[in-house]
């Protein structure tokens, strides 16, 4: 197990390195990239950028320099605002985003897994049909549409919850619903199909042939197996929440990192966009690692296959 974790950690470090490298060379290589159009920039910022990225130096030197800075957790200055850095943006908005995102992941898991399991057990039953229908609908509607409708009806018209900004517990409700709707739908679908797959496995039949009562067959033999792909999907789940947070934070005017990311895009604040890309890359790599370790805890085959 320890060896497996170590191996995963090393892999993730490689992934993190790929993220930084890919991002760096993308911004260097692309024709419309940030430094191709540095015309009307204020003097101070231009100096800042040149100092920071050593634009007069050879490419490889720039690259290693950038790498060094990232390792020191310095993600670079803003392209548009003097004296502002990517680190500032992250430090300011991260706790809000983490609360919103964490809550959404939690709700998706706590509701999605049981609903998926029950849906599979009562395959084509009422709950299964209703949730499957809702899941199809939420998965097909762009998140800004869902968020917009929630904000409009529950916020502005019915005034049940504050329609925007951040502060009290009530402020959490609408953005959290909007943010977790997609991942919840996705998780229900994943759990359900995973359960249905397990239903037809030979070992389930073996358990029944042993005379194990149905409840224990489901609880002990099916759910644990069905959860393996669900746990392994932690990283994509987080990625979905993360991308969703860009839009949700923007719509509900929540002062999180996701909103800053969108603002940096609309402002063409390239260096902030890039720095945040690296930041998000690291974040997700971390979640992938957690997902891998959790999977290994549930599924003995994983940890042994990789060790052996």
């Amino acid at each position: 197990m320890a060896r497996y974790i170590l191996q995963r950690v090393i892999t993730m470090l490689v992934v993190a390195w790929v993220v930084v490298t890919l991002t760096f060379f993308m911004m260097k290589a692309l024709p419309g990239g940030p430094f191709a159009s540095e015309k009307k920039l204020p003097e101070a910022i231009l100096k800042n950028i040149e100092r920071r990225y050593k634009l007069d130096r050879p490419l490889m030197e720039q690259y290693f320099d950038y790498l060094k800075n990232v390792v020191k957790w310095d993600l670079g200055p803003s392209f548009k605002y003097e004296g502002r850095t990517v680190n500032d943006v992250i430090n300011k908005g991260f706790s809000v985003s983490a609360k919103l995102g964490g809550l959404s992941i939690l709700i998706s898991l706590v509701l999605g897994v049981p609903i998926g399991v029950i849906g599979a057990m009562r395959h084509n039953g009422l709950l299964d049909r209703v949730t499957s229908g809702l899941a199809i609908l939420t998965a097909a509607a762009p998140s800004f549409v869902i968020a917009g409708l929630l904000q409009y009806y529950l916020g502005f018209k019915l005034k049940w919850f504050p329609p925007a900004t951040w502060g009290t517990t009530k402020h959490y409700v609408l953005p959290t619903i909007a943010l977790c709707s997609f991942s919840l739908a996705w998780l229900i679908k994943l759990t359900r199909s995973s359960m249905l797959e397990v239903t037809n496995q030979d070992y389930v039949r073996t358990a029944r042939a042993k005379g194990i009562p149905e409840f224990w067959v489901v609880y002990r033999h099916m759910i644990k197996n069905a959860l393996v792909p669900v746990i392994a999907s932690l990283a994509p789940l987080t990625a979905g929440i993360l991308v969703g947070s860009f839009i949700i934070e923007f719509i509900f005017a929540i002062p999180g990192v996701g909103r800053e990311f969108v603002v940096s895009i609309t402002n063409r604040d390239y260096t902030v966009t890039l720095g945040m890309t690296v930041f998000y890359g690291f974040l997700l790599t971390g979640f992938t690692l957690v997902g891998d370790i959790l999977t290994a805890l549930v599924d003995p085959r994983v940890r042994l296959d990789k060790e052996g």
Binding site: R205, T206, G211, E214, H221, K224, N225, V298, R301
Partner: peptide
């Protein structure tokens, strides 16, 4: 009934299945 049947399965009549590779639960 299902309950009565599960008292017979495994106790009175048991089964040995053909595929040992998939017949055992991999996570237990």
């Amino acid at each position: 009934s299902n309950k009565e049947m599960s008292k017979i399965r495994g106790r009175e009549i048991s089964m040995v299945f053909q595929d040992p590779m998939t017949g055992l639960n991999p996570v237990l």
